[in-house]
Design a protein around this nucleic acid. Structure first.
Length: 333
DNA sequence: AATGGAGGCAACCGCCCGCCC
DNA sequence: GGGGCGGGCGGTTGCCTCCAT
């Protein structure tokens, strides 16, 4: 197929020379990119507009971060990928200075292999069948370090719940394990979560089970992990759908950042999260994410705001993220 | 020192979507 | 409404480098 912008003119392909980089850089610094299709001609390049755009985004942009990925970045990628799948552009939005291409390459060359080595399916983030019987994979179920670990660690159904009455400053919650929110069946979406009312948040990986079937029909009995410091009581929950605006309030109330990092990188991530929230608020104010939006429709066909979802759960660095010995072992490999 | 394989990364390809006429 | 066009994105390819033999 190809693009017209490429077929209309004689275009060079392959690696960019330093001279081409300089031309493109000078042009964009002076005039901005405007219409990418016009950039090659204006900048004196024998490239197609798309190639220029890609070169700028992936290599020449001044705000790009160079070097290897940090552990925080790695974990962020894994956790957001668990939620969104191969949405590299969305994932990259949570990694300042990283591009979708970079994230994608890093995933394919490194993270994917790590997950497989750990016995996880990199697509679903579920335990691979051959690993489910491995006792080492469920060690975290019985530890007592207040961490809530991957649903994979204690549930093959990819569904688990977080009881909001137990969310406290002493509890680190890896809520990124929780891509799919089913909100509490309380009388009001604005219920006071500090009360004795037990509100259950349920999460489900859209990569594994996702349909337009009403949520309550999908939910399996859920076992709260002992690591949360509560009894493991089987719970069958009902669910409700809430407007995004209310959803945000509920989640924000329940999952306030526990620690404020002094790490500049974390501060930058926190700042980005705030920006994402503002975007959501703006969109709501503009009616783009209407109050009618609810959670019973699929991500792909709804107005559900992924940025909001992500900003609610990310970055992981904000949530007193503690690596379990198991995690450390795995991630230091 | 030469060679072949593996891994990493930059870039391209093809498709989709939104905008405009 | 539909076609053209440009931008964006995910998948794939191919080149380059590194390392083991």
């Amino acid at each position: 197929m190809g693009h017209n912008c490429c077929s209309k003119q004689k275009v060079k392909r392959g690696l960019w020379s330093p001279e081409e980089d300089e031309k493109l850089l000078n042009h964009i610094n002076t005039y901005g990119h405007g219409s990418w299709s016009s950039v090659p001609q204006l900048a004196g390049l024998e490239r197609c507009g798309k190639s220029c755009r890609l070169r700028w985004i992936n290599y020449l942009r001044p705000d790009l971060k160079r070097g290897s990925f940090s552990e925080i970045e790695e974990r962020t990628i894994v956790e957001v990928h668990r939620i969104l799948g191969n949405k590299w552009a969305q994932i990259a939005k949570h990694l300042p200075g990283r591009t979708d291409n970079e994230v994608k390459n890093f995933w394919n060359s490194c993270i994917k292999k790590k997950l497989i080595a750990q016995g996880f399916d990199p697509n679903t983030h579920n335990l691979l069948p051959s690993s489910k019987a491995n006792p080492s994979n469920i060690i975290n179920n019985n530890n007592n370090n207040n961490n809530i670990h991957a649903c994979n660690m204690f549930s093959s159904s990819s569904v688990f719940s977080v009881n909001s009455s137990h969310v406290s400053a002493d509890t680190s919650i890896d809520i990124l394990e929780a891509p799919y929110l089913t909100l509490p069946s309380t009388s009001s979406p604005n219920a006071n979560h500090e009360s004795s009312t037990i509100s259950t948040y349920e999460f489900q990986n859209p990569n594994i089970v996702w349909s337009t079937t009403p949520v309550q029909e999908q939910i399996n009995p859920i076992f709260l992990p002992e690591s949360m410091g509560i009894n493991s009581v089987p719970t069958i929950s009902t669910s409700h759908s809430y407007p995004i605006s209310e959803l945000e309030n509920i989640v924000n109330e329940s999952f306030q950042p526990i620690t404020k990092s002094t790490n500049p990188e974390d501060i930058q991530l926190q700042s980005q999260q705030e920006e994402a929230r503002e975007v959501v608020e703006d969109e709501e104010a503009n009616g783009l994410d209407g109050a009618q939006t609810n959670m019973d429709v699929s991500f792909g066909s709804s107005n559900f705001d992924m940025d909001f979802m992500e900003s609610t759960v990310l970055p992981c660095g904000m949530y007193n993220y503690q690596l379990s010995p198991m995690d450390q072992l795995a991630w230091n490999c």
